[in-house]
């Protein structure tokens, strides 16, 4: 008798355990997707930035930031982005001609100048720098505008 009763009990326990694990996993994955910066300003930049990213960037760099072959460099994991935040802000504004090395691989497809405002650049930068493997936090318009004024003096060749 006892063995008969203990079976459904064990099954229920197993289901509960599974549910618990799933809940924990979804929690963790939610947290890791974007930065833990939860200020309203960050959220606003991030949400706007995602829209702008889908409008201007994802055609080439893909929705998931994986890039396309050796034509368009990835953004999801990018040593170039990690090392050259200011250059990235400038090239969103001015576009990019010529070759660029990302993660040790050489890319050489022209990127057009986007003709968008400082705020929009800040929103895109906040989005791409807080998604996938990046957690830079908010890149606000004040910071981005300052970087943009110094673009010409940055070595962008």
């Amino acid at each position: 008798m006892t063995t008969v009763e203990s079976k459904p009990g064990r099954a229920r326990l197993l289901i509960m355990a599974c549910l618990f694990v799933v809940t924990i996993c979804s929690f963790v994955s939610c947290n890791s997707r974007s930065s833990n910066n939860t200020s309203p300003k960050f959220q606003q930049y991030y949400v706007q930035g995602e829209q702008l990213y889908l409008q201007y960037c994802s055609n080439c760099h893909q929705k998931d930031g994986s890039g396309l072959g050796l034509l368009y460099p990835p953004l999801d994991t990018s040593d170039f982005m990690q090392r050259h935040l200011e250059d990235v802000v400038c090239l969103i504004r001015n576009g990019k001609q010529g070759s660029l090395v990302v993660n040790g691989r050489e890319y050489n497809q022209a990127m057009p100048a986007l003709g968008i405002s400082d705020l929009e650049i800040a929103e895109i930068a906040t989005y791409i720098y807080n998604t996938w493997s990046h957690q830079e936090g908010l890149l606000d318009v004040k910071f981005v505008s300052e970087v943009l004024t110094s673009c010409d003096s940055l070595a962008m060749k």
Binding site: N59, C60, L68, L71, Y72, P112
Partner: peptide
């Protein structure tokens, strides 16, 4: 730069 990268 418009639809071709998506097509590819």
């Amino acid at each position: 730069r418009t639809i071709c990268p998506v097509m590819k």
